[in-house]
């Protein structure tokens, strides 16, 4: 088991070879896994202090003069504390800034509701110009980081805190905007974003004839793959560690509205709470058993 944030940190270190790549954080470099980059490339690492609004504005300025800035903080603080800065200086200006939020979802666990960011995808996917990526594991977070560096324009990536099951391997292909169909089937289709994909796969294997799509890019959404599933499968079940309102399930529903039944699993209009993350997953309905019930 490995954490998505480690995938980001390791990839960032690898990206350091490119002299245009710079990294910024707001007093969280160990937690967001920027320490290795900071140690190896001290002149290209900037700590702005506990100041997320400034984090975004400065990154936007750096990108304007040709740098490729990666900013990282906890989801509760970025985008949680700097939405206007992201909207104006990054999205509206179409600046080449890569935002990486760690510690998202109830997966955060013990820190509780305050830090369990459950609204970030809703906030980010409605911004014009913004690409939104939610990798499912360490390897995918690593690849998504490299892919974002290559893509010109604003990107947001969401990763969790915990070590989670490894689903993809080093050889699994990854392309921003192209969903992965990991199981074939027609009885139903489970669309998952993030580490909950693991439970989706287990549920599908136990039930049989269930398609599973890893929707790692929420924007731009893979219209073809999803419309195909809506046509060929009797129903779609979406699952994510995020509010049902406005999240990936909403994005899928917007696309297949009127074409297919959609059951959305996620956090249902409430805040999280402190606790062990595995137990919270059970409490908030994000496990294999809940998916099977929805099937």
């Amino acid at each position: 088991m490995k954490a998505g944030r480690d995938g980001f940190g390791d990839a960032l270190l690898a990206l350091g070879k490119n002299k245009q790549v710079v990294a910024l954080t707001a007093d969280l470099s160990p937690s967001v896994r920027m320490d290795a980059f900071k140690k190896k490339y001290p002149t290209r690492f900037f700590d702005v202090g506990v100041a997320e609004q400034n984090l975004i504005g400065v990154a936007s300025g750096l990108s304007h003069v040709g740098k490729i800035p990666f900013t990282s903080s906890f989801g509760a603080f970025m985008p949680g504390m700097c939405y206007q800065q992201i909207r104006t200086t990054v999205a509206y200006n179409n600046n080449n800034v890569k935002l990486v939020a760690t510690h998202c979802g109830i997966d955060v666990g013990e820190d509780g509701a305050m830090h369990q960011m459950l609204e970030d995808i809703a906030l980010m996917r409605v911004l014009p110009n913004m690409t939104v990526v939610v990798p499912c594991d360490y390897n995918q977070a690593y690849k998504a980081t490299l892919a974002m560096a290559k893509l010109k324009g604003p990107c947001y990536m969401r990763v969790g805190r915990s070590k989670t099951m490894e689903i993809t391997s080093k050889r699994t292909p990854f392309k921003i905007g192209r969903a992965q169909t990991l199981r074939k089937g027609k009885k139903a289709c489970i669309i998952a974003s993030g580490p909950v994909l693991y439970d989706a796969l287990k549920a599908a294997d136990e039930v049989g004839n269930v398609r599973v799509i890893n929707l790692h890019t929420i924007k731009p959404i893979d219209t073809r793959t999803i419309l195909k599933a809506a046509k060929e499968c009797k129903k779609i079940i979406t699952i994510e560690d995020h509010q049902i309102a406005g999240g990936m399930g909403s994005a899928v529903s917007e696309l297949v509205s009127g074409k297919c039944e959609v059951v959305r699993l996620g956090i249902d209009d409430e805040f999280g709470e402190s606790g062990n993350s595995q137990e919270l997953m059970k409490k908030f309905g994000l496990t294999k058993e809940h998916i099977k019930k929805a099937l």
Partner: peptide, 8 residues
């Protein structure tokens, strides 16, 4: 902030 980023 943006100007500081540019100057940086």
């Amino acid at each position: 902030s943006q100007a500081a980023g540019m100057a940086l």
